[in-house]
Structures are given as structure tokens and as C-alpha cells.
């Protein structure tokens, strides 16, 4: 695990590319990068112009960076208080299946939210991500090269969700939520990150139980 703390998006991408090269060459084992980003809106490969509700200039004037990126998916927002997980994993040693890996990432967040926080976290059929009630709290977009993954999943923990109003997250009209909305008391960012890291490790070890990741959505 590599914890980068609060790091600019572009710098984190540089680290991720370097780690990806090392994992691809077999010089490093699978590595999970964990970080937060200063405010940034990122455009994935599937992004549409209509997903941006204000101009790029207006975004920058609010102190939010704007980056084009090479992950799957549409537009999203990252900011302090949102945990971002970039698993650089060789799927050749796990399962060469993008669907499986997307479901694994969802599950890594759903389990702790349900089991440790009592939240009704779930996935929606035909969609990718994690919801609590009507709110989407987990966002996913990945890339794969030589069957080694990059990019990953972000979870809103205590992030200011107002900047999501500048975009159509994932190209959809979504209600976005953050975990702190569901609790009166402050929740520990580090504790949640640690739980998700543990769940990712555990799920990777449980790679045989594929069916569980594909269970019917519960919304």
C-alpha cells in the first residue's frame, strides 16, 4: 500500500504511471495507492461536453483544477475529504475480467459501509458505483494496460459536495452524497480508508467467490 496523502491529481498520476510500469515489468507486486486530491474536476474517456454545466474558465475561477485523464467513465470531482484508491493490480494473477474488477471495487466499499457503519450501501443494476439511499457516494473509472489496472474508486467521506453541482457526475443527473451526511458525529477518514484497504486485500484473496460480487442489487 502506498499512501500519498493529499496530492495534486497530476502528481498522483505520475506516481501511478511509475508504479504501473514496475508492476507490469514484475519489479513490484500489486500496489494499492491511497490519496486525496485538492479540488479537481476530471474528464474521463467517455466524457461528453454536456456533462460540464459551466465553462472550464468558471471552474478554474472557483479554484478547481480541470484535467483530462485516461480512465474510463465520464466526468467526476475530487476534493479533500474524499478518499481515492488507485489499485495497480495485475489481473493476470487475479481474473482477466473488467466486469469482475469493477464489481470487486464496488464491493470493497459496500462491505465496510454496511458492516461497520450500518449504512444501506448498494450497487445499481446496469450502473457502476456505490449508493447509499438515493445518493451516490462511490465513483469508479479504471484503465487497463497489459492486464494491469490503473485509476480506481473514490469515496465521498466528508468532502464538500457543492462542486458536484458544476457537472453531471458520470454524465447522469445524480444525487451525490457524502458519508458525513449520514452521521451526527465526526467520522474518521483514516479509519474508513483502512477498512477499505483491508476489504480490497480480502476480496483479492477471495477471488474465487465471484458470484458474490454479482449479487442482485438491493435498491
Amino acid at each position: 500500500m502506498l499512501n500519498l496523502g493529499l496530492i495534486e491529481y497530476a502528481r498522483a498520476m505520475d506516481v501511478q504511471r511509475k508504479v504501473h510500469r514496475e508492476v507490469t515489468c514484475g519489479n513490484s507486486c500489486d500496489t494499492l495507492i491511497v490519496c486525496e486530491h485538492p479540488p479537481v474536476i476530471t474528464f474521463g474517456r467517455a466524457s461528453k461536453k454536456s456533462s460540464l454545466l459551466v465553462s472550464e474558465k468558471a471552474i478554474r475561477e472557483r479554484g478547481i483544477e480541470f484535467c483530462l485523464t485516461d480512465r474510463g467513465g465520464d466526468v467526476t470531482y475530487h476534493g479533500p475529504g474524499q478518499a481515492v484508491f488507485y489499485p495497480v493490480f495485475d489481473l493476470k494473477g487475479l481474473k482477466k475480467d473488467l466486469h469482475f474488477f469493477l464489481r470487486l471495487l464496488e464491493e470493497s466499499v459496500i462491505r465496510p459501509l454496511r458492516e461497520n457503519f450500518g449504512l444501506n450501501a448498494y450497487r445499481r443494476q446496469g450502473m457502476t458505483g456505490v449508493w447509499v439511499g438515493p445518493y451516490k457516494v462511490g465513483f469508479i473509472g479504471i484503465g487497463v494496460r497489459n492486464w494491469v489496472t490503473y485509476h480506481g474508486i473514490s469515496l465521498n467521506i466528508s468532502v464538500d459536495i457543492d462542486p458536484f453541482s458544476l457537472i453531471r457526475p458520470c454524465g447522469l443527473d445524480l444525487k451525490v452524497g457524502t458519508m458525513s451526511n449520514f452521521f451526527k458525529d465526526e467520522i474518521s477518514f483514516k479509519k474508513i480508508c483502512d477498512m477499505i484497504v483491508e476489504n480490497i486485500k480480502q476480496l483479492v484473496c477471495e477471488k474465487g467467490s465471484f458470484d458474490e460480487f454479482l449479487r442482485e442489487p438491493e435498491d
Partner: peptide
């Protein structure tokens, strides 16, 4: 051989075909 030739996208993933 083995270098990126074409990138394809699904809903939430990009995949580089070598």
C-alpha cells in the same frame, strides 16, 4: 509487439490492446 496499439472503452473502463 506488445506496445499500445488501440484503446477501447466500455462504460467505466478503458483497455489498451497491444
Amino acid at each position: 509487439e506488445g506496445s499500445d496499439l488501440v484503446e477501447v472503452s466500455t462504460d467505466k473502463a478503458v483497455f489498451n490492446v497491444p
